[in-house]
């Protein structure tokens, strides 16, 4: 699993004319509100149009394997146990025990207290451990608690931190507060050996509601140094949607145009079928570009998706439809 510690977002604003936009709340507001608007109907129509692409045969094979490699296999339940996490981690490393050629998932995504367990099972498989932190999923805690939560996960060995933003602050227009919190969490992702955990910033787009907000928060997070921008916690409906992801892909594309730096995108929640996953990949390909068709730059936050990908993969290889009994539960 070739995710490398690519330092996507160090000093993202240097030399791109963006240095001043975070200098004050007013400046940040001016910048975010100066971004081009998003027409809802147009954005949704574009997403729907991309979703009609027909991906067949060899293209489908490639897409399924790529999608498997992009899965952040997730369990975020109050009922999670060490046993459950160990099983999930094993599944991430070897999704299809019957086929050694089947690639591993990108990561397992767990609560901070399960990081050590996951890490232990994954070993040097290359599959990362991602931990949701910062009082996930609501984010309603004091900053020092969120930072402690983050540090705890990083110390336990998390390769990636999935933080949530303070949606209340964002919706009430306190953009600089949101920005500074992301900066602080990113600092908390640091390790003494320099192998900093990568930071994914979750917006909970279902609560932000408008695509204008999605575009603004995407830029805000990228300016603050996010390595990845992520749609949802999976705990709020709607979670990931194609048009929301479209707007985020446009944002990372434009951010690279302006700064030269790439930021990853992770839709999470509600993506359950191979068909859905392939629609996302088509969108990545045609909106952000083929450079993003890599687990370093695009992930699926999902749990049930993996098995559907495996079933489709098997169908393509064997020529017959498979059934859930032939794949492991976790």
């Amino acid at each position: 699993m070739p995710i490398t510690a690519s330092s996507a977002a160090t000093a993202p604003t240097g030399g791109s004319g963006l240095a001043d936009v975070t200098s004050s709340d007013a400046a940040l507001r001016r910048f975010l509100h100066g971004l081009p608007g998003v027409d809802q109907v147009g954005a949704e129509a574009r997403a729907a149009s991309l979703a009609t692409r027909s991906i067949k045969t060899t293209a489908k094979e490639q897409a399924l394997d790529l999608a498997i490699r992009m899965v952040d296999l997730t369990t975020l339940e109050g009922s999670d146990t060490h046993g459950k996490v160990r099983a999930l981690a094993a599944k991430a490393v070897r999704p299809d025990p019957a086929d050694p050629a089947c690639p591993s998932a990108a990561a397992v995504c767990v609560y901070p207290d399960m990081v050590a367990t996951a890490k232990e099972t994954l070993g040097d498989s290359g599959v990362h451990v991602a931990a949701v932190a910062t009082a996930f999923p609501s984010g309603r805690a004091a900053l020092d608690i969120k930072l402690a939560d983050t540090r705890d996960a990083v110390e336990a060995g998390a390769d990636e931190i999935d933080m949530v933003i303070d949606r209340g602050a964002f919706l009430s227009g306190r953009y600089l507060q949101v920005f500074e919190e992301i900066v602080a969490v990113r600092e908390a992702c640091a390790r003494a050996d320099g192998e900093d955990a990568h930071l994914k910033v979750i917006f909970e787009t279902g609560e932000l509601q408008t695509y204008d907000n999605v575009r603004r928060v995407s830029w805000l997070a990228m300016l603050a140094g996010a390595h990845f921008i992520k749609t949802s916690t999976g705990k709020v409906q709607p979670a990931a949607t194609l048009p929301v992801t479209l707007v985020m892909l446009e944002a990372v594309r434009d951010f690279r145009r302006q700064t030269g730096q790439m930021v990853g995108v992770k839709p999470a929640g509600g993506i359950r079928t191979s068909k859905d996953a392939i629609k996302y990949l088509v969108m990545v390909n045609e909106v952000a570009g083929a450079d993003w068709l890599d687990p370093d730059w695009f992930r699926f936050g999902a749990s049930t998706l993996l098995n559907d990908l495996l079933m489709q993969r098997t169908k393509l290889r064997t020529g017959r439809y498979s059934g859930p009994d032939y794949f492991t539960l976790d």
Binding site: D39, Q40, V41, G42, E44, Q209, T210
Partner: peptide, 11 residues
């Protein structure tokens, strides 16, 4: 002449 104007409805 009849003029027909379209505009999307969204938020």
């Amino acid at each position: 002449e009849l003029k027909t104007v379209w505009h999307p409805m969204g938020v």
